[in-house]
Amino acid sequence: MSTASLARGSSNALGAQLKRLVGGQEMILLLCILAIFLIVGSLNPRFIAERNLSSIFLGNAYVAVAAIGMSMVIISGNIDISVGSLIGVLATISGTLAVNGYPIIVAWLAPLLIGVLVTGFMGYLVAYLRMPSIVVSLGMLSILKGGLISVTSGAWISNLPAGYALAQLRPMGVPMPIWFMVGLTILAAWWMRYTAAGRSIYAVGGNAEAALLSGISPRRTVMMVFLIHGLFVGIASVLFATQLAVIQSTVPPNLELTIITASVVGGVSILGGAGTVIGSTLAAVLLAAIGSSLIFINLSPYWLRAVQGALILVTVLADLLRRRRQARRR
């Protein structure tokens, strides 16, 4: 799937999407990001130097990619808290294949396949056996994390073969993770808005019974969402694994919280039925920009987390106020 064909296919959609953006949560996020760039950039111009902007986008691209799948899961009325463990496991599998002489393409694609299998299993339990997704993914979190430690004991994977480092490629001067982040966000946003399958996610998350009456199978939709989520987690894990020259083969601490935060700050309603993946991607960038900017303004690192938490709260409240004002105007 080339980026060029993607861009062609979605150029009309993109225009429409841009119009809708104005006044939405996406706009607020965009303004927040711009405000941070402006304010911190005027305090320290190095903040908006190309190098730093690139690392802000680059460092959290895998979070944004995983947040796309997570957003779909949340919009469908579910959640997956095993995502951080799954990324850790998939990255380890990918690295292990690569150092054991398998073709690089296998090392890149295997995590996608295994990711889909794991989330497919969870999706089956959720969709067809009616188990709450939070229970399934809580259990899966333990299984994946314990299993990873049992198998690897935390041995680092190094001596990765040349050419494996997908995330360090720079086609047309732009780092690969940014291509993935932008391309997948546009593709997913277009798909969710303009295809029947994509729209059914909102229908199921908004009101499963109504969706059923209008001919959508909530089970199939939820199953589909989990499968797609697995694909995005797989891609995110490859970006994660190939970013550095070594792979840690542990579960990254709190990664599931970062990904879920990106989704909900991006305006995805936890009650299901609303939100866009453009919002979640912008939110992932915003979180990275906040993290970087607080170092630039010489904030005492002891207060860093408090400020981060407060800023997340402000973003969420701003979104709620905007929605309420809109509701009043109607």
Binding site: F47, N52, S55, G59, Q243, Q248, P252, P253, G291
Partner: peptide, 15 residues
């Protein structure tokens, strides 16, 4: 966390 360490070190270099 190795990715976070990388990001933090990069931010210091940029700053």
């Amino acid at each position: 966390d190795n990715i976070l360490s990388f990001n933090q070190a990069t931010t210091l270099l940029n700053k």
